[in-house]
């Protein structure tokens, strides 16, 4: 039983950064903006989180720094694509390239240092309950934040007026603009939210998952988060399922290695990427489902005529 609990816990820890980054990107894409810079914002969050945590000695300040740096970095993308109407695909890519370079440069001094780890939740009595105790009351803080984020975003997008407005912008920015909605203001806020989430996901990596700084430690998770948004067909509650499947995949890889299953480790390491491709194919071959949920204005630049 203990083994099962441990496995479930590690799956949750592996899935959390994917979920957090994906839920942020989901809001961004719902507003009609495609930000391919998730990987870059995530790695900036990771290096900022580790650095602030190490220098101040407080992992909480580290997490805060990760969120702020992620949002700040996404502001660069917002100014380019929203105010200067640049190509979103190319700008997102350059955000990722810049983030990978900048984080590598900032993190040179952090390599090999022991990091601060965010403590797991502990509530006396409740956490000590058998089985459910640690699963429900004993995980790391970002896990709870991720659940709250998903619930919050689902409520915001589909139960509030502002959420409806945001979705309408994502489907037709010209109509929204004609109705007097500040398209760019909404999109700026959405991109900043996405950046903060990606930063938080990066912070989780360097403050919970593996509390240290390793160059390129995001290892494509930002891109998997982007795929997760497609997998969720832009619906918040479909994200966790995909996220936990990926988490389980990553985990299965480690366990298979531990049990000495005679498969080359490189093959096991490539499974998450192959699984992402397989899942994308399965989802996108259903044209009706994709057409119905994809924000119609996704990726198109908008310049208001005044």
């Amino acid at each position: 039983m203990d083994i099962a609990v441990n496995i479930l816990l590690t799956i949750a820890t592996a899935a959390t950064p994917l979920l957090v980054a994906a839920i942020g990107e989901l809001v961004v894409e719902r507003s009609g903006v495609l930000n391919l810079g998730v990987e870059g914002m995530m790695i900036m969050g990771a290096v900022a989180g580790f650095g602030a945590g190490y220098l101040t000695g407080s992992p909480w300040l580290g997490l805060l720094a990760a969120v702020l740096v992620g949002a700040l970095f996404s502001l660069l993308f917002a100014v380019m694509t929203l105010s200067l109407a640049t190509n979103q695909v190319a700008t997102g890519l350059s955000l990722t390239l810049l983030g990978l370079g900048l984080s590598g440069m900032m993190g040179t001094g952090f390599v090999g240092l022991p990091g601060e780890r965010l403590p797991n939740l502990y509530i006396p009595f409740l956490t000590d309950l058998p089985v459910v105790g640690r699963l429900v009351f004993g995980q790391d803080p970002v896990f709870y934040i991720s659940i709250a984020l998903i619930a919050g975003v689902a409520w915001f997008l589909f139960r509030t007026r502002t959420g409806l407005t945001l979705r309408s912008i994502g489907d037709s920015h010209t109509s929204a603009h004609a109705l007097g909605i500040h398209v760019l203001r909404y999109r700026y806020l959405a991109v900043l939210f996405g950046g903060a989430c990606a930063g938080l996901a990066g912070g989780q990596l360097s403050l919970v998952y593996t509390p240290q700084w390793v160059e390129n430690m995001t290892a494509g998770r930002g891109w998997i988060a982007l795929a997760l948004v497609v997998f969720a067909s832009w619906r918040p509650w479909r994200g966790p399922a995909g996220g936990y499947i990926f988490g389980a995949g990553r985990n299965g890889q480690l366990h298979a290695q531990a049990f000495g299953i005679p498969v080359p480790s490189q093959f096991l390491s490539s499974l998450p990427y192959l699984a992402t491709i397989a899942v994308l194919v399965l989802i996108s071959r259903n044209k009706r489902l994709t057409m119905m949920n994809t924000p119609a204005a996704l990726g198109q630049p908008f310049v208001p005529d005044r």
């Binding site: 700008t91 810049l98 370079g101 900048l102 440069m105």
Partner: peptide
């Protein structure tokens, strides 16, 4: 890594 930073900045400014 400075090279990577230069490259990233260059692309940003080109697009802008």
């Amino acid at each position: 890594k400075v090279a990577r930073v230069f490259q990233g900045m260059l692309l940003f400014f080109v697009l802008g």
